[in-house]
């Protein structure tokens, strides 16, 4: 028996919004420690890694490890039927071929449940080693989203250059070029508005805008985002989901031919 309850459906909607741009379907691996998902986009250029800890749920029970393959468009149809303030309970029997989403209104006067067929998906799991990154940039998530959106107008790729002075995002194309520099903030009223840089050595890497923009769909999950970079390894874009876990995106850098 698997049962996981979140006080607000809104958070699950945000999680789904953060992954469904990149993935059509995905396997949710449920265990005692929580719900994990690791999946690559169709082109195998980027990867989503989601972790929702069991202690982040209002109620969590997982008697046996369970892998639930879900069509994310169908899951989105179901979550559309919930109000953000509804409680959501995800339920499945051991070895079941369906999962049930139950929504309860705050006053408990409306209870709805939706059953969805599960899918058997081929799992292609990548082993991602612990890595010490040359640069870790932390910044407001809305700022990162804005930069990605703005630079997409000027080129297909963004060059990210990180030094101890700051981080620079650049794009260029037929119409011209664009550069955005962010310095480390010296003092801020709110911690989530800070820009900070941990640097071992400077890094310059190029990434496809299309994927970066998909990653920013996670912006509503977290006020801050971190970008971890080293020469010639994939970028990690991480959003901490308060009291629940994290979502990480990996993106292979582009290589000049």
């Amino acid at each position: 028996m698997f049962e996981a309850r979140l006080i607000s459906s809104g958070i699950l909607k945000k999680v789904l919004d953060a992954i469904k741009d990149l993935l059509n379907e995905a396997t949710f691996d449920c265990s005692d420690s929580g719900i994990q998902l690791q999946a690559m986009d169709n082109s195998h250029v980027s990867l989503v890694s989601l972790n929702m800890r069991s202690d982040g749920f209002d109620k969590y029970r997982c008697d046996r490890n369970l892998s639930m393959g879900m069509n994310l468009a169908n899951m989105a149809k179901i979550l559309k039927c919930a109000n953000n303030t509804d409680t959501v309970t995800i339920k499945a029997q051991d070895n079941a071929d369906t999962v049930t989403f139950m929504f309860e209104s705050q006053n408990q006067e409306k209870v709805s449940d939706y059953e969805m067929k599960l899918m058997n998906l081929d799992q292609e799991h990548l082993g991602i080693p612990e890595t010490d990154y040359a640069c870790i940039v932390r910044m407001p998530s809305h700022e990162f989203a804005r930069i990605c959106r703005d630079l997409t107008q000027f080129g297909e790729s963004v060059v990210i250059t990180c030094t101890k002075e700051g981080v620079r995002f650049s794009a260029s194309g037929d119409s011209g070029s664009a550069n955005i520099k962010l310095a480390q903030t010296s003092s801020v009223d709110k911690e989530e508005e800070a820009v900070s840089i941990e640097m071992q050595e400077p890094v310059t890497l190029t990434f496809a805008c299309q994927y970066l923009n998909s990653f920013t769909k996670a912006t509503p999950l977290s006020p801050q985002v971190s970008l971890s970079m080293s020469a010639d390894v994939p970028l990690v874009v991480e959003y901490q989901i308060p009291d629940l876990g994290h979502i990480r995106y990996y993106l292979a850098p582009k290589i000049e031919e």
Binding site: H44, H125, L126, P234, K254
Partner: peptide
């Protein structure tokens, strides 16, 4: 021009 490698060229499949 630039080439877009896949993640499999950086990480091993488990």
């Amino acid at each position: 021009t630039s080439e877009q490698p896949k993640l499999g060229s950086y990480y091993e499949y488990e």
